[in-house]
Amino acid sequence: MKGAGLDGVSVHHVTRRTFCRWVGAASAISLGCSGAPETPPSSTTGRSKVVIAQDPKLRDTRGKLSPQRVAALLNRALQALFDRDHPAEAWHQVVRPGQVVGLKVNCLAGKGASTSVELVEAVCESLQQAGIRPDKIVVWDRLNADLESAGFRIRERGPGVRFIGNDVLGYSDELYAHGKAGSLVCRTLTEVCDVVINLPVLKDHSITGVTIALKNLFGAIHNPNKYHLNAGDPYVADVFMLPPIRSKVRLSICDAFTPVYQGGPSYMPQWMWPFNSLLVSLDPVALDYIGWQLIEQKRAEAGMKPLRELKREPRYIFTAADAQHRLGVCDPQRIQVIRI
């Protein structure tokens, strides 16, 4: 599976210089078009938007994330993605009052390399401002223990936002299959949530190259350990194609506050950098492609080999965009990167 580089030549990777030039050009284009009427971003037609929202002052002097700045960054990112003047208008493009909204976080690595509590709080707050009742918001991942290790407090019932692992409700009776994947899907997704907002972390992965938006849904199935063969290709794309997943995941908000560029998915403080950013997109494939390039760029700066040379290039991103999957686009010419 190959992707197209900037020059239209089929290549597997983009060099740092090319990437920066392309990001700059894309940003300029998007700025120039900011006054144009909004065209809803599409994952299957036209160009996919990926917003990279950055705030260098996201942390205080002790390195702690500022909840207010995280919330402001999130709302700016959503407004940029949907080209809306008010955050609630942007959120209404994703959710409607009355829906049960699931937030799929990524907590396996524990505190430090998991979805930030501050980001989840900000998303919950924004959803409530958009009319979603707190008891209609469900923050979930594989295990209660994983959520707790990332700093979340389990709340299985009650009037507030719920925090539950898949071990609480278990998995579907139905076996869902696509391509090489055959899995049960967690009941939190199949029976509880109407809409899922994907909240992955930007990380290197020692087997699949990177783990970002697409792979985060491994946390929705009962057998993720079976799907790391061949650097996750085509398994990551196939799992995302399972009907309950594909139909319910609407938006990806990637926590790139402190990404891991080597040694992931575990917590590796020596190989993390303060990027202080969010990557937001309706297109998980485009988001993964851009996130992957950011990790490659950082690896190159640190003098590390590209993932392809380490035989863990995330080819599943290209597979997710192919004619059998159509989960999004990974052609840089069809991705509009908006830096704010």
């Binding site: 396996l108 690595a109 524990g110 020692s206 087997i207 057998n223 350990n225 079976k226 790391h228 063969l229 992931g264 998915p265 575990s266 917590y267």
Partner: peptide, 12 residues
């Protein structure tokens, strides 16, 4: 299987 911290092998 080469397994990272907090992860499981193929067998699960």
């Amino acid at each position: 299987c080469v397994v990272d911290d907090r992860e499981r092998g193929y067998c699960g």
